[in-house]
Nucleic acid binder design. Structure first.
Length: 261
DNA sequence: ATGCCGGGCGAAGCCCGA
């Protein structure tokens, strides 16, 4: 039995609910990790999602941030907020067990801080958040179970993941400190699902609304699925649903997914 | 191009994103 796990920064779930349900019908993922809900739990349009047969675990926030997991399989052991960041006021992490028949996966939906501008506390917040994520990933990896840490990492891992690396040298998404922190997390034993399957340049998950970035294909790859060894051993395929950027009223991010079996 | 879009809030114009 195969399970399809996806991640998508929707940039407001209220504005994007039709796009989300359209994509769910079209792509039929078992699990979707959502980021940037920009709404509190009570305002989340649950009904439209539940009508398609999905369960929800929401960690919302008014105006900014907000993450959720939706799953055709039962969700349990739900954790809201990143362990090690007890005073974090921003909703950026939700994790749950997905009980997919005879297999059980632990899945997290992550909205990593942007970090710009780099000479401000926003950048240190990003790096502190990544330190806490690394510690928590170490803990999760010690359980030696299939684990998927999915989300908007706000990090461009390599030069091939951006249309013009030079233009991004001083940006928090591409700064050496940010890339090193992501490498350090991966070096715990996590596999970037896209890069496990494809080595070509120009695989993007985000195109800015401005400057006709989509039309010019000026994109970046910042949405990632990181797999524990037990999950990576099950990896059968991946995809980036680029056409979703051409939807009416699109998010600036598109869904990225992996099939595990 | 550190704001050209687009969304939230709230009812104009500012904050924020990447």
């Amino acid at each position: 039995m195969a399970i399809k796990i996806a991640s998508w920064n929707v940039n407001s779930i209220k504005i994007r609910i039709d796009a989300v349900t359209n994509w769910l019908r079209e792509a039929q993922p078992d699990v979707l990790c959502l980021q940037e809900l920009k709404c509190e739990d009570s305002a989340f349009p649950r009904g439209a999602i539940e009508d398609l047969g999905y369960n929800l675990a929401i960690f919302g926030q008014k105006t900014y941030n907000g993450v959720a997991l939706i799953s055709k399989w039962p969700l349990s052991d739900i954790r809201r907020g990143l362990p090690g960041m007890p005073d974090d006021e921003q909703s950026r992490y939700v994790e749950a067990l997905v009980e997919a028949g005879e297999r059980v996966f632990r899945v997290a939906s992550i909205y990593l801080p942007n970090g710009n501008p780099v000479d401000t506390p926003k950048f240190s917040y990003k790096l502190d958040w990544m330190t806490a994520l690394q510690r928590h990933a170490e803990d999760l990896l010690s359980h030696e179970e299939p684990l998927v840490l999915a989300g908007d990492y706000n990090i461009i891992p390599m030069p091939d993941d951006v249309y013009d690396p030079k233009a991004w040298l001083d940006d928090a998404l591409y700064r050496p400190e940010s890339r090193a922190a992501l490498r350090s997390i991966c070096n715990l034993g996590l596999t970037d699902a896209i890069r496990a399957c494809h080595d070509e340049a120009g695989l993007y998950t985000f195109w800015d609304y401005q400057g006709a970035a989509w039309q010019k294909n000026k994109g970046i790859r910042i949405d990632h699925l990181l797999l524990s060894p037990e999950a990576a051993d099950l990896l059968r395929g991946v995809g980036i649903d680029k056409h979703v950027r051409g939807y009416e009223k699109p998010s600036d991010h598109v869904p990225v997914w992996a099939v595990l079996s």
